[in-house]
Structure formats: structure tokens, C-alpha cells
Design a binder for these strands. Structure first.
Lengths: 205, 205
DNA sequence: ACCTGAACACCGTTCAAGT
DNA sequence: ACCTGAACACCGTTCAAGT
């Protein structure tokens, strides 16, 4: 297969449609026109294939969004693994990145909130659980902190699923409110740590 | 105006369509089939009028959902005014109620998160601000706590906008996670209180 | 003013038919 | 296996026409 010239928009078109190519273009479209602006027809047009071809690879729009969500969180997982530090500092930096990435894809927040368990890779889940467990949190605390953080980070970056709200998070106000809320959440989480450690010592006595 | 008997399903059909009647039926439909299941056509059918009649009263589906959201929050405001106690206890009870009400209307959470400022009545906003200000919080803290609480409560009760997820919040797990997260948030908020009071004393010295 | 019902421009999804 | 393109059953919104 020799390279193609085609156009600036980077077709890269190999032999035929691939799942990864579909996800890549879908992501691009979402960041431009939002989840509501992405239709299976417009996606197919941008891919240069007929509607049925897209459906041959992806059975439903829901499934397509799940794949896009997994793609997003996959990248975030890689980033999380590269930062060190205390549990709270690590999670703080990570959650800010989650909010940034999600807010750059209008309408994804809504979808993610409703489908978090389908979308968050088990690896990412494992890493975050590991960070909290290592810090000394009890299992119930880990679950509570985890869901609170994800819902807060995803929810805060939810805007109308279409156009102009994409840069909402870049807005100083929104960003300030987000970080303040995040800090309250982490402070509250930290307050559980002492109790959890005490309970653990009592348990292993 | 004398009382009506009508039937169990309560048609109440007076002279013609009223905005409040539309909102009432829309709310009912949403709690049954979710926001996605509510279409302007099905709503019109349930109202017993033609599609155009509904549009004569409500210009758009977005506007209809705003009205429903205001209706929901309006009731919540009335409830909030009836409970007393410390700032954190009041907000805790209120937020649990918000989550309950919102989760009983599948798909509303998504809409509310994207349109909070359009939907939350200024009165409700004022009451909550009052509670926090009276407790001694600084203005920036009030804004941060307010948005964090609303996003958390709304976000946590967001499920897929359709059928079965309506009772998700009744689920012990979800409810437990919600309350745990809420407590962390309130604990974190409380930690700001000492600082805010100190700053206030220093300022008014 | 209030309402009807057809029409427009879209959707997501399916599926016979082609190669 | 992979793809085409028409068809189905819906949407939200608009608007001439009626009363």
C-alpha cells in the first residue's frame, strides 16, 4: 500500500474502514460540532463512505460514543501513570486534566456521566484505586472518593452539547470554581484518612 | 372557580391549553418515559391537541424543559425554607432531596447540568447564598460551595435518559456513595469556614 | 388569539442487493 | 466480508389555513 496525497484533512485511508479510524474522526467531529452535531450520516460523509459502511463497523451511536469515551480515558490513564507525588496532589492534577479533556468535547460529559462504568477503562480504575489504597484509605472510602471525584470532574465540565460552550472551562471563573470544589472534595476525603488508618490498626491488632 | 371532579388521570381540561397544564403533563411524561421519551408529538397527543397547539404555548422543547426544571426547583425551594438547623445539616438534607427529585425524572439531570443558571430560580439561589453567608462564609467560598454542591447532586443522579435507570438512586449503593461524597464535600467546605471567619475579623478590624 | 395538520429537513437504524 | 443506497419510523420546527 503506497501513501496517498489527498488533502490537508489527512485521510490516511488505508485499505478500508477501520474501527480506530472511525473513532479518530468521530472524536475530531465531536470536538468541532459536539455530540449533537455528530450524526452517523455526517460521520460517514467525512469518512467518505456510505451510511451502511459505518454501521458495519459500529453497531450503534451509543457504542460509538463508548469507544470515543474509552479513547479519551485511555489517554488520561497514560498521563496519570507519569505523575508522582502525594495521593491528593496526583488526583488533583489528574482530575483537572479529566475536566479539560472532557470539556473540549462538547456533549461528552453528559454521555460519560450516564455511562461511566461502561466507559472508564478497568486499568484506569485500578490505578486510581491503587493510589487511594496505598494512601491508607479503606475500601468504602475508596469507592466513595472515586465516584465523587469522577462525577464532580465530569459534571463540572458539562455544558450544552453543541457549539460555543467548548471553551467554557478555559473561562477563569469556571476553572476557579472547579478547582475550589475539587479542593473541598479532597480536603473532605483527607479527613476520612485518619479514621480509616485508625480502623485499620484496630482491625489488624 | 369551583372544584372539579374529573377522573383519576386528571384531565382537568378547562377551556383551552394552559402553560401550567403543559408543564404538568410534561413532568408526568418525563417521570414515566424520560426526557428522550418525551416528544412534542407525544406530549400533544397526551394533551389531546394538535402539534401546533403545543408550539403555540411553548416555543421550543428546550424552553419546555426549562419550565419543567423551574417547576422542580420551585418545589425544592419551598421545602428548603421549611427546614432549620445548622448550615451543613440544612444543605445536606436539601441536596439529598434534590438528588431524589432529579433522579425521579430520567434525563433531566443532563439537561439541568447544562442549563443550571437558566433553571435554578433566583429565589432558591438567594436562600442558599443566605444560609452560607449567615454561617460566615466569604463570597468566593459561597460561589464555590454552591456550584460544587449543585453539580455534585445533579451529576450523581444522572443516569441514562430513558427507562430503567429511574430507580437507580433508590439503590442502596448509589445512595450510600452519594451521601458519602456529599459529606466529604461538606467537610471540605467546613474547613474553609475558619479561614473565612478569620479573614473577616482581620478585614473589619 | 388559538388551533389544525401538512410539510421540511433532519435523525438512528435496518436491510436487500451488489462486489 | 465489506459496502451501497433506499426505506422505515421517528424527530423538532415552521407555517398556511381555518375558527
Amino acid at each position: 500500500v503506497t501513501g496517498r496525497l489527498d488533502d490537508v484533512a489527512d485521510d490516511s485511508a488505508g485499505v478500508g474502514l477501520s474501527d480506530t479510524e472511525i473513532v479518530r474522526v468521530a472524536r475530531e467531529m465531536i470536538s468541532e460540532v459536539g455530540v449533537d452535531g455528530l450524526s452517523m450520516r455526517r460521520l460517514s460523509a467525512k469518512l467518505g463512505v456510505a451510511l451502511g459502511a459505518t454501521y458495519h463497523h459500529v453497531p450503534t451511536k451509543h457504542r460509538l460514543l463508548v469507544l470515543v469515551g474509552q479513547d479519551l480515558y485511555g489517554e488520561l490513564t497514560a498521563d496519570l501513570l507519569q505523575v508522582g507525588g502525594r495521593w491528593d496532589a496526583r488526583l488533583r492534577a489528574f482530575m483537572i486534566e479529566v475536566a479539560e479533556v472532557v470539556s473540549r468535547h462538547p456533549g461528552m460529559a453528559n454521555f460519560l456521566m450516564a455511562n461511566l462504568d461502561e466507559v472508564v477503562p478497568t486499568e484506569l480504575n485500578g490505578v486510581v484505586v491503587g493510589i487511594l489504597t496505598d494512601a491508607g484509605f479503606a475500601d468504602e472510602s475508596v469507592a466513595a472518593i472515586l465516584s465523587a471525584l469522577f462525577f464532580f470532574a465530569t459534571g463540572m465540565s458539562a455544558g450544552s452539547s453543541s457549539a460555543g460552550s467548548a471553551r467554557a472551562f478555559a473561562d477563569v471563573d469556571v476553572r476557579g470554581l472547579f478547582e475550589a470544589g475539587l479542593d473541598m472534595l479532597l480536603t473532605g476525603a483527607g479527613a476520612r484518612l485518619a479514621d480509616d488508618r485508625k480502623a485499620r490498626r484496630a482491625g489488624s491488632r
